[in-house]
Nucleic acid binder design. Sequence first.
DNA 1: CTGAAAGCGCTTACAG
DNA 2: CTGAAAGCGCTTACAG
Lengths: 339, 339
Amino acid sequence: MLVTLKQIAEELGISITTVSKALKEYPDVSKKTRKLVRETASMLNYKPNSFAVNLRTKESKTIGLIIPEIVHHFFSSVIKGIISQAEKKGYLVITLQSNESYELEKKQIDLLLSKRVDGILISLANGTGDFKHITEVIEQETPIVMFDKIAKTVKCSKVIIDDRKAAYKATQHLINIGCKRIAHFRGPLLPQNSIDRFLGYKQALIDNNLSYDASLVYLLNDMSFEEGKFYANQLLKDHKDVDGIFINTDLVAIGAISEFNKKGIKVPEQINVIGFSNWFMASVISPSLTTVNQPGFQMGKKAFKILYKEIKDRKKRKNISYNEVILETDLIFRDSTNN
Amino acid sequence: MLVTLKQIAEELGISITTVSKALKEYPDVSKKTRKLVRETASMLNYKPNSFAVNLRTKESKTIGLIIPEIVHHFFSSVIKGIISQAEKKGYLVITLQSNESYELEKKQIDLLLSKRVDGILISLANGTGDFKHITEVIEQETPIVMFDKIAKTVKCSKVIIDDRKAAYKATQHLINIGCKRIAHFRGPLLPQNSIDRFLGYKQALIDNNLSYDASLVYLLNDMSFEEGKFYANQLLKDHKDVDGIFINTDLVAIGAISEFNKKGIKVPEQINVIGFSNWFMASVISPSLTTVNQPGFQMGKKAFKILYKEIKDRKKRKNISYNEVILETDLIFRDSTNN
DNA sequence: CTGAAAGCGCTTACAG
DNA sequence: CTGAAAGCGCTTACAG
C-alpha cells in the first residue's frame, strides 16, 4: 500500500539506485531525471520508509528524554525547550518518566538504548545514587547530556544552574532587607541541588556574620505543598523569632505561605519568604512569591543543542569534549519579601 | 561494536536462524540450544537491533502524540497518563507540540507518518478547523485517537468529557446557591469545548427560568491570566449586578479572582466564581477555586488503551469499531463559591 | 530439531 | 549520467 522506491523506479522505467539518488539531490543524476523523479514521488505521495533508512544509516534521528516528573512546571518547561529545539533540527523526542525511581530510570536507559536512540537527555531521579547505568551509556558511545539534576562525578556534558550561587543571592537578599534569623527548608540528601542550595544559604549567613544554626534547617522529603504547610507550622512552634525563610522550591513555599496566612502570620511583615524555581503559580498567589527564576525552557534548548553537537561530532569521528554550561538565574522580587 | 545475532551464531557454531528462534522462545528449538543461546546472548549483552526488527515486522512499537501545549497542568497530566500506560505495553511515545497552530499540527502529522509510528494520539489545536490531515491518517490505516479537543465530524475513536453537562452542572450550582445574574467567560469560537461549555451554561439558565443575556457572555482569545484580569475588570464596569461567573478555564478564573481581590470585590460574598479543569493552582490560591475536575491522567490512559486495541486489531486484520468514551467530571467545592 | 534462503526498503561504493 | 549488487540485521516460510 505504501509507496516504495521500487514503485517509482518501475513507473519511470529506471533503476532504484537512480531514484534514490535523484531524491537525495545527488549531483551525478541529470537534472531531467531528478525533476521527473521528484514529480512522480510527490504524485505518488512517496515517503521514505524510515525503518529502512534507520537500518542503513544507523541513525534514528530520535533522542530519548528521561525526566523525574512530567506534571511539574519547571520540568514541563524543559521538555518544551527540548522538543522545540529538536524539531528544528529534524529530531524527534521520546519522553520517559522515572518517577524519581532509580530502578525505573535504569530500565528506561536500557529501553532507550535498545531502541537505538541517537542520544539521551536525562535529569536524574532523587533516588539515584549509583551512576553505573549512565557511565555504561557513555562507554557504549551513545551521547548523553545531563541537566538540572546531575551527578557531579560523571564525565559527560551538563546543563545546570549554579544552585549554590542562586541560593546565596536569595539568602543575601533576606539579609539585605534586615532579616536576622533566617530558616531554610531544604530538600532530601540525595539530589545535588538541595545540597548546593543549602550550602549557598549557609555561606551567605557566614559571610554576613550571622551565626549558622542547624536547628533552623528543616529537611523535607517529598517537597509537597502539604510538607510546606506542615513545616511552616513546625517552624512557628520551634522558633518564634524567625523573620525570614529561604525555601528550596516554590511549591513548598506556597504551602508555607498558605499556612502562615491561615495562622494569621503576616507575610512579609512578620516573616519574609523566598522560594525557588519561579513556577507560574508563584505570581498568582497572595502575597505573590519572591523567588529564584530557573530558566527551564532555555535549559531544555541548551541541553539539546549540546547533545546535537555531540551526535554530529561522533558521526564525524571527531573526539568529543564535554561541555558544562551554567545558566544564569535571577531573583524575582515580589510581595512575599519586604524589599 | 554492538552484538548481532550473527556473532552469537558464530560464537556457538550454529545458524543465525536458530539463534533468532531460540531467543524468541520458539518451541521448535531444543531446550539445550535455547538455554545456551540465552546465556551467550546475555553474556555478550545482546540487544536486538530495533531498526532491523522494525523493518521486518513493520512495527515500531512507538506512537506519536500531538498536544497543543506541554506547559499546562491538564495536558501534562494527560501526557503522563499516556506515557505510563504505553510503557506498560512496551510502547514508546514521541511527543510533539502544535502550539495551537493548524499549520504546525499538519506538519507534525506528516512527520509522525513518515516515521511510521504505529498510531497517533491527538488533541487538536485551537486553530484547526479543517480535518483533512486527520482523515488522511485514517485512510492510510494508521490508528488515531482524538482526546479532549476533538472534531465531532471526524470518524475515529475519541476520549472526551461531556463539556456541556459539566458546564451545566457548574452553572446549576451557581443557581442553587442563589445567583440570579450569572456571567460567563467563554473561550474562542473554534474548539468544540468552548462551544459546549457555553451551551451548557446557557441551557442551565433557560431550564431555571433565568433569562439568557448575551451581554453577560465575554469571548476570550488566549485564555490567559491577564485576560482573566482584564475581563473581570470589564465585567465590573458593564454589570454591577452580576453575582456569579462561570469561567471556561481555571487560569482565567484565577486572573479574575486576583482582579476582584485587588478591586476589593469580595469572593464569594459579592461574586461567586467557578472555574474549569481543576489545575493544582486552583487549590492554593485564596480564596481557593471551586471548579470542574477534568481527569487528565485518566484521559491519557484511556486514550492509549483504545489506540492500543486498534493497533492490535488492525494487525489481526479485524475490522475496527470506533469507540467514543466520555469520562466523568465532578464539581470540586471550594471557597470561591458560597456553597 | 536445524539451517539455507528470501526479503523488508533503503544507501552507497563501484563499474561502465 | 545510470545501474547492478552488496549489505544493514533481523524474521519466517520452507526443506530436510
